[in-house]
Amino acid sequence: MHLIDSLRGSSLFGDLPPAQLDLLSRLFVERPVRGGEVLVRQGDRVHPVGDALFVVIEGAVAVQVEGPLPAGGSGVETLAVLGPGDAFGVASLVDPAPRAASCVVVEPGRIAVLARRTLDALVHSDLALAARVEHALARQLARDLRVFNRRLRARLGL
């Protein structure tokens, strides 16, 4: 799987025009990940310079929250398992709060990283693409909030 195919198949950037998708893919840096590697750690402070958006190219990444569980006691709850084309780190790009969840590699593969400073610099080099990317990030957050809302209502019996 190539990075551009992962981006094209992603809910985040899947509807970008091909030319913009190609430009965007060149801003990502790819790297291999090994099983058990912690890519994001819950509670960590977000560093404005070191922060990034991650997209899975190959393998799988679990989004996990550690703490009190709804059923009682405490432990690790897996909220989602992400595969090729799925993104994480979106909320931290816009909200400078400690990480709400950990992201742990559960199946080795490769990820693509878009540094926040690269994204911020895009506004000077390609404003049209910068606006498309920001729009895509906002849409992802809206989808996440809708899912969260649905899960919350189900739990509350509403």
């Binding site: 909320a91 709400a100 606006a131």
Partner: peptide
């Protein structure tokens, strides 16, 4: 505009 919306959405999620 979308950045302003995103920061509200991210804060609510958190």
């Amino acid at each position: 505009v979308v950045r302003a919306l995103s920061s509200t959405l991210a804060r609510r999620l958190r």
